[in-house]
Design a protein around this nucleic acid. Structure first.
Lengths: 129, 129
DNA sequence: CTACAGCTTAAACCATAGTTTAAGGTCAAG
DNA sequence: CTTGACCTTAAACTATGGTTTAAGCTGTAG
C-alpha cells in the first residue's frame, strides 16, 4: 500500500496538503498500519485527483467537500446522485456564463488599438474604467 | 471635493478597502484637509475604477500596483495591461473549455435512464468526475 | 549501530484581500 | 449643545488554502 508521500507525489500535491484535506474533512481518516502511518488505496488517489480537478475548475474546498462525500457514499440511489449532479451542473453553467462575460470584455479590450503612443492618450483599458 | 465615504459609494467599495489600497501602496496618500480627512479628486476615482476593473479581470493587487504607478507617472501601462490581460484571457479560455467538457459529461450522464444502480460500481456520475 | 529519509502531531505561520474594533476627532442638524 | 453620521488610527480578526516548525517515532541502507 501507499504512504502519504507516494500518494502526494502521484497526485502532485504535498503530504501536508493531504493531511490538511483530511483535517478539513474532505478525506476520511485513512487506515493506519501498526506504525501509525496512513495507508492509501487507489480509491484515495482517485478522490484526490477529483479534488484537484474540481479545484482547477475554480471550485472551493467547501464546495468540493459534499461532492467527495457523495463519492464516498457512491452507492446511493442514482436518483439522489442525479439531483446533486443537476445542482452541480447548474453551478457549472453559471460559472461558464461568468467566465464568458469576462472573456468578452477581455477580447474587446484586446481588440482596441493602443491608441497613438504618447500624446495625451491614456490606455483605453484605463479610459474604460 | 470628495470624502472617502462618497468615493467608496461611487466606486462600489467600502472606505476600509480604499484605506487598505492606500496602505498597500496602490494609491498615493491623498491630500488631507485641515481636519485630517482624505480628499479625493475625479482622478482618484478613475484610478479606483481602474483598480476594480483590473481586479474583476482576475489581476491581483500585486500586479495592479505597478500598472497604477505607471498610470500615475504618465507613462503608458497599456502594453503591460494588455500582456496581463492576454495571459489571463488564455487562462479563462482554458477554464471555459474544461468546464464545458465537464458540462457535456454531466449532461450526457443526466440523460441516461435512471436504471438500477450498478452492482459493484460507484454511480457513474461520480466515476466520471 | 548509526544515519537519514519519511512518518506523526499540534500549533504557528504565510499570502491575499479585506473587515472589524476600539478609541477618538469632526461636521451638520435641530 | 447634543446627537448622529462620518472621519482618523493601529491592531486584531476573518476566510481560503495551505506550509512550516518542533519534537518525536519508524524504517531502511550501510
Amino acid at each position: 500500500m501507499l504512504t502519504i508521500g507516494k500518494v502526494a507525489q502521484r497526485v502532485g500535491v504535498r503530504p501536508s496538503a493531504i493531511r490538511y484535506y483530511e483535517r478539513r474533512g474532505l478525506l476520511r481518516p485513512m487506515f493506519r498500519g501498526a506504525n501509525g502511518y496512513r495507508t492509501y488505496s487507489d480509491e484515495a488517489i482517485r478522490l484526490l485527483l477529483f479534488l484537484k480537478r474540481a479545484q482547477a475548475l475554480g471550485i472551493t474546498l467547501k464546495e468540493i467537500k459534499p461532492l467527495l462525500e457523495l463519492a464516498v457514499n457512491g452507492r446511493r440511489p442514482c436518483s439522489h446522485v442525479k439531483q446533486l449532479a443537476k445542482n452541480h451542473l447548474r453551478e457549472i453553467e453559471a460559472k461558464i456564463r461568468e467566465l464568458q462575460m469576462l472573456q468578452r470584455e477581455l477580447r474587446a479590450l484586446l481588440r482596441r488599438k493602443p491608441g497613438r503612443p504618447h500624446r495625451n492618450e491614456v490606455c483605453p483599458i484605463i479610459q474604460r474604467a
